[in-house]
Amino acid sequence: MPAYYLERIISTCFSSFQVQNEAEITIEVNPETIHRNELNEFKAAGFNRLSMGAQSFDDKLLKTLGRKHSSEEILQCYFSARKAGFKNISLDLIFGIPGQNVDCWFRTLEKAVELGPDHISAYCLEVHHKTLIQKQINDGLFDLPDEDIQADMYLMCVEFLSEKGLIQYEISNFAKKGKKCKHNLFYWENENYLGFGAGAHSHVGNCRFKNIDSPINYVKKLQNGEDISEDHEELSRDIALSETMFLGLRLIEGINLNEFKKKFGFSLTCVYGEQIKNLVEKGLLSCGENLKLTKKGLFLANMVFAEFVPD
């Protein structure tokens, strides 16, 4: 998408909404598709944060992931972005890739930290249905690192990044002081948001919905004044509560009991008292002013979250 389209989108936002001075405006880029001067244009268009899909600094693993860029191109992209004036840059990294071991992962983290990013998202590879990588795994071409190795990788990552001043604030997210991703915090705090464009998701009040996926139809329908939303889901109180729980507990600081009470009008312990007691006993949750995952709970978060979803 040419930069002037993006510029128009942002200026439309500014003319339609009241935008706070310190608003975080992020653009996601892939090193393989970006050109140096574009980065300048993005900056000029109003973007103040850049999130880069680096994934790995190991060229062989990048191929395994089906990425077209090289580690060299990540560096070029990163330095260009700094030159263009981006003061808030995030790198996405992936671990648990077939053929990756703990040392390999450590070298990628080292290289990433050397660049001095403001933020890192480190995701364990999730293999989805009907993807090429799943087929390759099924065909025996690749082997995923087993659960124990993944756990070692994750543990190493959490410890190493915090040593380097990138503080973990969510299961997969690490930031320098003051550089948490405001946009994503909104999701985890289960706040309302509007998504624009084909395929974008929204959460308004007790309803979640998305826009239709096809850009052509999206434009057509908008021009005809038709509804472009679909998949409306009315959230019952139980579901809204459970989402507040499993989203909020993704944050390292967890859920503040007072804020919960302010938001819902009753206390957290009166709805989930039994689950909380049980999980605290198991050493997976800790409960003070905030309810949060323990270090052990961080690694077994799904076991915790599953306790809060309705039957």
Binding site: E147, I171, Y187, Y193, R208, F246, L300, N302
Partner: peptide, 20 residues
């Protein structure tokens, strides 16, 4: 040792809830 979904953002909250 490890049972945690790496990602959960606005677009897949419903899907993640169903997994849970």
């Amino acid at each position: 040792r490890k049972d945690v979904l790496a990602k959960c953002y606005g677009g897949d909250i419903t899907r993640k809830r169903k997994l849970l």
